[in-house]
Amino acid sequence: MKLIVEQLELTLTRERWPKEQPFEPALVKPKSKLEKGNWLVLAAPLEPGGVPEWARAGGDDYVRIPLFPYDLNPSADLALAFMLQLGLSCAGHLPGQVTDFFVVTGTPVELLYDPDTNINTGLKYWVGFAVIVA
């Protein structure tokens, strides 16, 4: 299995987003002739240990990989553990043999602060997943 990590610039995406629509960022990428197989994308946010909702990407030449926000603990070890649990939850519920696993991260990660104390309470991290199954 090949692991591919790509980034989506959130600041610019948010600036260009229509103000009257909810912010739902996604990476849109062309399907390469080298990337044959059935494309599945994570279609809804996932809780660690939950069952992912996979959606088939359409039959056109592009795939849309939506990013979902996750509020992470401000402690780096717990934030990384959450993301590891999330990735394993995805990997544990894949229908078929995965040839490519795409991780799309939103950058920059947003710091969350308590408005009264100005203490960091966590991170808002945007991430999306897609896979190609044989």
Rank of each mutant, 00 (worst) to 15 (best):
M1A: 15
V51I: 15
G128A: 03
P52A: 08
D100E: 07
T121Y: 10
L67H: 11
V104I: 15
V28P: 03
G106Q: 11
M83W: 03
A44T: 04
R64V: 13
L78T: 09
L72Y: 06
M83P: 01
V63W: 00
E35G: 01
R16D: 09
F23N: 12
P66Y: 14
L84I: 15
G128E: 04
R14I: 12
Q21C: 07
I65W: 03
G92H: 12
A43N: 09
T13V: 10
T117E: 03
G92I: 04
P18V: 10
L40S: 00
G128C: 04
G87P: 03
V28S: 07
S32Y: 05
D100Y: 14
K36E: 10
S89T: 13
Q21P: 00
K124Y: 04
L78F: 14
D77L: 06
G59S: 07
I132L: 13
F82A: 10
F102M: 12
Y62W: 07
L84H: 14
L8T: 05
Q21Y: 00
P108L: 07
P52E: 03
G128W: 00
A44Q: 12
L88G: 00
V104T: 04
A55H: 04
E47G: 05
D71T: 07
G50V: 11
L123R: 15
P45N: 07
G58Q: 10
E6H: 06
G37P: 08
A79G: 15
Y62N: 02
A91E: 08
S32C: 08
V131E: 06
S32V: 00
E35P: 00
P52R: 02
V28A: 07
L72A: 05
K31W: 02
L94F: 02
L72E: 06
D60N: 12
A134Q: 14
F68E: 01
A57V: 01
C90G: 04
N38A: 11
P22D: 09
L80S: 13
R16E: 13
Y113A: 06
A26L: 00
I65G: 01
A79K: 11
P69G: 06
T117Y: 01
D60K: 08
L112C: 08
L78E: 14
A44P: 01
V104M: 05
G87E: 13
L67S: 10
P115S: 01
V63C: 01
A76W: 04
A81L: 13
L78K: 13
L80T: 07
Q85K: 12
E47Y: 01
P69K: 05
W17C: 02
E9C: 08
E53Y: 03
Y70D: 08
V63Y: 05
V5E: 14
L123K: 10
P66F: 10
T117K: 00
L3D: 09
F68T: 05
T105Q: 07
F23R: 05
P66Q: 02
G122C: 05
E24P: 06
K19C: 06
E9M: 07
